[in-house]
Computed example of a mutant assay.
Amino acid sequence: MDKVIDIEERIPSMREKRRRKTNKKFIFIIAVFCIALLVLLYFQSPLSKVGSIEIHGAILYDEEFYFEKSGVPIGSPYWGFDTKEIEKELLKIEGVSKVSVSRKLISDIDISITELKMVAYMENDGKFDLLLENGDIISSDINYPNVPILNHLDKPDIRKKLTHQLMKMDKDVLHLISEIIYTGTEDYPDTITAYMDDGYEVHAIIPTFAEKMEFYPEITSQLEGMEKGIIDMEVGTYFSPFNKVYGIEKELIIEGDEEGEGDVDGEENE
């Protein structure tokens, strides 16, 4: 015969289960209310606004320029913009090759800019534009030291050839070049003249410019103590003092292979 359980014996346990269930519902409602309240307070507080924007990698343009182009003012909603859309806008700027926008900490924005390298200045009616590594020219107000000024390089194909040579050149040698003037003609379209910070003048051709200039420090060390002059690297490597250039005088030939290696000897050239 089955045991009969008195209902009065079960009432306390049923009440306890009902109380626990009620408490869980109450706690859940309180938790939802608290979370909603915190979210509401967050969006009403300064923490939900953009507090600062840090920009890294700005050289071609100043940080304020990128800040304005980002379209995200300080104090705007922190979650009110799409980082990918900002990246697309900044990539439209000339000279910018890569952009990364991310949210940092509580209310900070981090913008990392990767720019094309600046190779030289281009003189344009008394103003100086910037020549980039891809051959493009942009206007900028920055003061970028240790790059040469290029003159008379109006032809894009010639400009790109010279840009390629400057990108290959050793930085220490490149920083010695003050100015490069394109002197090409119809018969000799690749000739250039480079004026150096240490007082020498270099005559060269574009296709071998970087290769020949690799030996420039060695050449000038051999000429130490002598009068400044012209180092001709167009075919071989020759040196002529400035005060002898226009006369039938002694010219120094830097002996060696066609890359300009060797010693400096004197020879009569008439």
Rank of each mutant, 00 (worst) to 15 (best):
K98T: 07
K127H: 10
V101D: 10
D108H: 13
E115C: 02
M122F: 06
E89N: 14
L116H: 03
K127R: 12
K127W: 07
V101I: 09
N124M: 00
L105Q: 04
M118L: 04
K117F: 02
I93G: 10
K88R: 15
I109R: 01
L105V: 02
E123G: 01
R103Y: 00
E115T: 06
N124W: 00
M118C: 03
R103G: 01
G95D: 06
K104F: 09
G95E: 04
V99C: 14
D125H: 08
I109M: 00
I109F: 02
K127C: 04
D108V: 11
T114A: 08
I106D: 11
I106V: 15
D125F: 08
I113H: 04
I111G: 06
S102N: 11
K98H: 10
K104T: 12
S107P: 06
L90N: 15
K104H: 13
G95T: 07
L105I: 06
K104V: 13
G95A: 05
L105E: 06
D125I: 06
V101Y: 10
D125E: 11
V119P: 01
S102W: 08
R103K: 09
E94N: 15
K117P: 03
A120Y: 06
I93M: 12
E94I: 15
R103C: 01
A120K: 04
D125T: 03
D110Y: 03
N124H: 00
K88H: 11
T114C: 01
I93N: 09
L105N: 09
D129V: 10
K98N: 13
S100R: 13
V96S: 03
S97D: 05
E115G: 03
V99I: 15
V119C: 03
V101M: 07
D108K: 14
K104Q: 13
K104W: 12
D125W: 07
D125K: 09
L90K: 15
L130Q: 00
F128S: 03
G126M: 12
M122L: 12
E123N: 00
T114L: 07
I93P: 09
D110Q: 04
V99L: 13
S112C: 05
E115V: 05
S100T: 14
M118Y: 02
D110T: 05
T114R: 12
S112H: 08
K88A: 13
K104L: 12
Y121H: 01
I93R: 10
E94C: 13
V99P: 14
I109T: 01
D125L: 07
N124V: 01
I109P: 00
Y121T: 00
F128C: 00
R103L: 02
V119M: 03
V96Y: 05
E89G: 12
D110N: 04
I106P: 08
N124K: 06
E89I: 13
K104N: 12
E94S: 15
V119R: 05
I109D: 02
I106C: 06
I93L: 13
M118T: 07
I106F: 11
L130G: 00
K127D: 12
K117G: 08
M118W: 05
S102K: 14
S97Q: 04
